[in-house]
Simulated assay, not measured.
Amino acid sequence: MSSNETAVPRPQLVNWDMAASTAASLTPAGPTMEPAEIARSVQNIRRLADESVAHVHAISRLDAARDLRDSEVLVIDRASWSRANAQSFRTLLEPALDQLAATRPDVMRSASLALGGTLTGAQLGTVLAFLSSKVLGQYDPFVASRHAQGGRLMLVAPNIISVERELNVDPSDFRLWVCLHEQTHRVQFAAAPWLRDHMRTHIGELTSGLMDKADSLSERLGTAVRNLTTAQRPDRTAVAGPGPRDTGLLSILQGPEDRARLSHLTAVMSLLEGHANVVMDGVDGRIVPSVKTIRRRFNARGTSRGPLEKLIRQLMGLDAKMRQYSDGSRFVRRVVSQTGMDGFNAVWEAEANLPTEQEIHAPDEWIDRMSLRRDG
């Protein structure tokens, strides 16, 4: 390229800076607290996060819990969570978009036009702002922490405090219970150091596959909205064929190859969430005295959501997220009951040991494939 030539800028599907700033500005305020009370709560959550690791080790039997120096724990507010997730989305999606721009510039331009009114930075920021008041904690393995090369565990203090007040449960018990779940995710990626790149690769392939079909994207988005509208009708009757899992936006955007990629990622996420749920509920009354009350009240929260929030949750795939918790939990409990926790832990040893989506719903098939069934 000569000095007089100017490189053609790559079409930008998402204005990431706008996404981060929009999310931070729209994030609702947390519970009203005095500065000293906030400081005490943050310190308490941090202490319980550290304390929970020993319990995760005892229940999961994963020796990776002994050394987590490659990642760090952050106790943050809602706006910080929103900004962090805008950064995480950018880290996950931009490599695939850069490759697409280099190899298929025509597709990239088409995708940019198709998504221009659908996936802007402001709209992504609005989604993150909504989610910022719902998430209690999150382990992000894809963005290096400030002081370590591994990921970052984020505990969203305002949300933890809001929910413990809503449920009227013991704050220390609830905070430790939440930390058990989130620290389990941290331990999972420490036990399977290959898992981060495995997921990053599959997410990148899914992203590239979606963008490669940009010419029909607008039509498929319209179909998704119509299906979601139908799913909300109170007089809708059940019919044979795809069920509620197939009414979300993401599921409509797939071709056959993309459905296979999504199926694999769904299985992995169900495994991770289900395992974390089993660990957090594996404590007894000596560790979390009110654990049964917490679980009962926490599960009952979903019945009090209004119709608007239910629709938003379905649009964003949050209901599918909750199914991952229950589907994955059933898988883990069945495998552990048949093979023991050490048998189950074979899942962290290699990519080939990950369950398929079919196996998540039929755990005995995974047990047989892995030749793990115990005698007797």
Rank of each mutant, 00 (worst) to 15 (best):
D197H: 07
M108D: 08
I161D: 11
I161P: 00
L228S: 11
G125A: 08
S208N: 06
T356Q: 02
R295F: 06
T356E: 08
G209Q: 11
N168P: 00
R330P: 00
E349F: 05
I45G: 08
S172R: 15
T356W: 03
A86R: 07
A362S: 13
D364L: 10
M18E: 15
T184L: 01
I59V: 13
A190D: 01
V135G: 05
I287H: 04
T120L: 03
T230Y: 12
R313L: 04
A231D: 13
A102E: 11
G125D: 04
D327V: 02
M1V: 11
L249W: 05
D342Y: 08
K310A: 10
I203N: 00
G121N: 03
E365G: 02
R374F: 01
M154L: 15
G317T: 13
L119N: 07
L372C: 00
L206P: 00
V156A: 06
V135L: 04
G151M: 04
Q188T: 08
E94V: 10
Q188R: 02
G125L: 09
C179I: 03
L354R: 11
V225S: 06
I287Q: 02
R90N: 06
A64M: 05
D63R: 06
N159C: 09
N277H: 05
T118R: 12
N44L: 15
H55N: 10
H361D: 06
P158C: 10
A191H: 04
R90K: 10
L92M: 14
P355A: 14
A240T: 10
S80I: 07
A300M: 08
D246K: 06
R146Q: 12
V8T: 15
Q358D: 08
M322N: 02
R226T: 15
E309I: 07
P256C: 09
M108K: 01
G209V: 12
K292D: 15
R226I: 14
M269G: 03
A192T: 11
F142G: 08
R296E: 13
W177V: 07
A267D: 01
P355V: 01
E205P: 05
S337A: 15
P307W: 05
R226C: 07
L271M: 14
A39I: 05
T223Q: 13
T32V: 15
D364I: 02
L113I: 10
A19S: 12
V156E: 04
G340H: 03
D140V: 11
W81V: 03
R261E: 02
A96E: 03
S218L: 09
E166L: 14
M211F: 14
A86N: 11
M316Y: 13
